[in-house]
Amino acid sequence: MSRVRVQFFITCLLDHLYPHIAQDVVTVLERQGVLVEVPAGQTCCGQPAFNSGFWAEAASMARHFLDLFADAEGPIVCPSGSCAAMVKHHYRDLFADEPEQLARVEAVAARVREFSQFLVEDLGVEHAGGRRARYTYHPSCHLTRELGVRGPAETLLDHIPGAQRVPLPEAEACCGFGGFFAVKLPVISSAMMNRKLANIEATKADVCVVCDASCMTHMNGGLIAQGKSPIVKHLAEVLAES
């Protein structure tokens, strides 16, 4: 049987802020026998520009993304629910008037798979590594509500031998990041974050797991600012440990 070959869509946050987590993604995938390829020249999918109304700029970034990924082979695996949702659901809005681009968008969108979804739904993996600890899980907004992915991350956590997963109160409430929202309306953003952090603390978990580095940055940033330890980790980071 030939190995499954995937294209790794790193995302700008993992590439530049958390390269070790990007490496963890590769480690976890390779452990499952997946051949990981990394298209060169990756930057940003354009989501921050798109969400704040700069569609022309977002379209230029989307075009760059399509140039890198359209001709590469196999599923495009992305360790972020919101970046995956951007390509999968919003690129078509950017090229509504360009039928030629739209065909490329649809072909690429159909190949995009979020990391936990790819592991569980496509590869059929349940145990992908990880150490025993008390975990809780924050289901990020775009992963659950835009991609409709609910369950794979929990499955992977629940199959870590000896690990315990405690439910997070108000789990599906947004952490308050929202891209530039966090800077434009910092007061509301921080209030949402504080509620989320209080809920995480109430679980007494060692680690809060999330599938989006943006939410992770927001929550850990809040914890550090409050003098606490940053216990939010990306799923790949948790699974790579074994």
């Binding site: 790193i10 993992l14 590439d15 530049h16 802020l17 958390y18 390269p19 990007a22 490496q23 990394v38 060169a40 990756q42 966090a182 800077v183 434009k184 910092p186 921080s190 974050m193 940055t217 927001h218 850990n220 940033g221 809040g222 550090i224 600012a225």
Partner: peptide
């Protein structure tokens, strides 16, 4: 600065993953 008022910001990596 509106970010860092209530949140810290992570360091950029010495070398990116790519």
């Amino acid at each position: 600065a509106a970010w860092t008022k209530t949140r810290a910001f992570p360091p950029l990596a010495g070398a990116s993953f790519s």
